[in-house]
Amino acid sequence: MIGFAAKRIFGVAVTLLVAAAIIFFLLDILPGDPARFMLGINATDDAVAALRTELGLDQSAFNRFFIWLFGLFQGDLGISFSQRMPVTQLMAERLQVSLPLALGALTLSTLIGLPIGIIAAQNRGKLGDTLAMILAQVGIAIPNFWFAMLLVLAFAVTWRIFPPGGFVPWSDDPLLAARSLVLPIIALALPQAAILARVMRTSLVDVMQADFIRTARAKGLTQSQAIWRHGVRNALLPVLTIMGLQFAFLIAGTIIVENVFYLPGLGRLIFSAISARDLIVVRSAILVLVAMVILVMFIVDLAYAFVDPRIRAGGGRSDG
């Protein structure tokens, strides 16, 4: 298990390095002269020269990349060009919104999706299964931001149970801050839960046909004992893979849903940076997002190895 984790950590490090290099290449080298790009066509030569010095553009691209990378390890991502604030500080503020949003949605969708999937599989072909799967079909098709708009209409405008948008920092009023995240989390979680329920059901229905379930029945277990003791754990394996991938979609979802609720998350930071052509913020924010996705996939791999002894021994999940 430890050897497996070490190998994976090495893989994660390489992937992160390559990701950083690509992001750096796209947003620092590809625009030609980043200073000219950020200031626009009308900027004076003096202003461009000043920004060039500030950005350290007189150094080679190779050096700049490593300066950025070392800064990253020290938590220093430079100063935002448009907001004149350290990028690290800007991002730390925004992550206080985005991170609870993404993790909350992941937790809620798992808590709703998996049990529904298991119960549906156990009652395959019966009314409850059919209803659950019709509901899941609808859930998968609903754009989360549109669902968010409907939630605002119902729970914030019509019934006024939750705030329609905006965010109070955690330090000011933690309860209110949490309340402002309830609707966004639900909007993100329910469509995800629909996907998880379907995957869980399909996987469990498949596993229920497996020979070892028949062995368990022949041993004397009832069908539902066999499902709970032998089926669910095996059926979870493909679900874990999907959950890792879903996290990438959840990150995308938080960026979009922030717009519905006017939440000051990472997404809105990125959009204001894009319109201000603030490459310094954009590249670091994107790297943080990508790093989050890579990290979650790593956790999924570890969880996989934890559940499945064949992977612990073999040293890798066979792809496909």
Binding site: L26, V282, L289
Partner: peptide, 23 residues
């Protein structure tokens, strides 16, 4: 090819779109 695959999975469409739009 497998490494490349895993790598692209770390770039959901929205992130690629942000990079492309920035440029």
């Amino acid at each position: 090819i497998l490494r490349f695959n895993d790598f692209i999975f770390a770039f959901p469409a929205i992130i690629s779109a942000i990079i492309i739009t920035t440029l």
